[in-house]
């Protein structure tokens, strides 16, 4: 019960002048209950990769195993496609564009209803999801188009959370949010992860990768170049330079402290709290 890519390649628009290889021989295993970040530059194949997880895209070559579901390039149809889409929920970049119902509550209940939940159950799930993302009850009967940008984003994400997926895939969920909103979103995903849901997230924010994720998958030119723990990954300056990734701000700050003679353990630093703990430790030793 995990997500597994076996030698997956994906050819975009085959047999046309626009043809290009968007994924090239991907081997990847993501274990249940983990929080995985997928990082890399625009056009490196991150979005293409995650769209294979709920079979929005089918591999041109190879096999994707998601839980008990198999997406094989050789098969024309995916078995139990609807069930798979409920099992692995995907939140697109700028998901607020998918809102369309008359009220917030109806929009979030739209997904569960599609998966054959009764009206009653769907509304229950919608309310639960909305309270989880921090939308107040007074907004439930408003039109989603009257909300602010950040609220729209929360409602759209609630639309997927209401499906109660085992795997939650997020494509740059914090892009365009204000810092406070982004922080709240990230801790929400952490909470969901701690309840046992596997979370896979595409992101450009390296501080978030360091703070929240157990593993980072680095992509470049349609290939996976590195799968590593974030704290290890950001230590390797040469690799970072090679794949032109920026290190998290907190790491560059810590490195400057180390360069000025402070004795910090870099792999222990994940966020402000752990940095402060390290600094205090270093000072008490003195």
């Amino acid at each position: 019960m995990s997500v597994k890519f076996e030698n997956v390649s994906f050819l975009y628009l085959p047999k046309t002048p626009f043809e290009h290889l968007a994924l090239d021989g991907i081997d990847l295993e993501i274990k249940d209950g983990t929080f995985t970040a997928i990082i890399g530059h625009t056009g490196s194949g991150k979005s293409t990769l995650v769209q294979h997880i709920n079979a929005l895209l089918r591999p041109s070559k190879g096999k994707v195993l998601v839980g008990d579901y198999v997406i094989d390039a050789a098969d024309k149809k995916v078995n139990k496609l609807q069930e798979l889409r409920k099992y692995a929920g995907l939140v697109f970049q700028f998901p607020e564009y998918q809102l369309f119902e008359e009220t917030v509550l109806k929009d979030v209940a739209f997904g569960p209803k599609n998966f054959k939940d009764s009206e009653q159950v769907a509304l229950e799930k919608a309310k639960k999801a909305l309270s989880l993302v921090g939308i107040e009850e007074s907004l439930f009967n408003k039109s989603p188009f009257e909300l602010s940008g950040g609220q729209k984003r929360r409602v759209a994400i609630a639309g997927i959370i209401a499906l109660e997926p085992q795997i939650l895939v997020l494509d740059e969920p914090t892009a365009g949010l204000d810092p406070q909103g982004a922080k709240e979103m990230m801790s929400l995903f952490k909470t969901i992860n701690e309840r046992g849901t596997t979370v896979i997230m595409i992101t450009h924010d390296m501080d978030n990768v360091l703070k929240y994720c157990d593993r980072a998958v680095v992509m470049k030119d349609a290939k996976i170049v590195k799968i590593e723990q974030p704290s290890e990954l950001f230590k390797d300056e040469e690799l970072l330079k090679e794949i032109s990734l920026e290190e998290p701000h907190i790491i560059s700050f810590a490195k400057k402290l180390i360069a000025n003679g402070m004795n910090l353990e870099l792999s222990e630093i994940k966020d402000f709290d752990s940095l402060i703990a390290q600094i205090e430790k270093a000072r008490s030793v003195k």
């Binding site: 929005l56 998918q98 599609n114 997927i160």
Partner: peptide
């Protein structure tokens, strides 16, 4: 492009 994106997003919400 937008159409394709929205179709994919709604497919993820169980629309067939």
């Amino acid at each position: 492009e937008e159409t394709e994106r929205i179709m994919k997003a709604q497919s993820s919400r169980g629309v067939d």
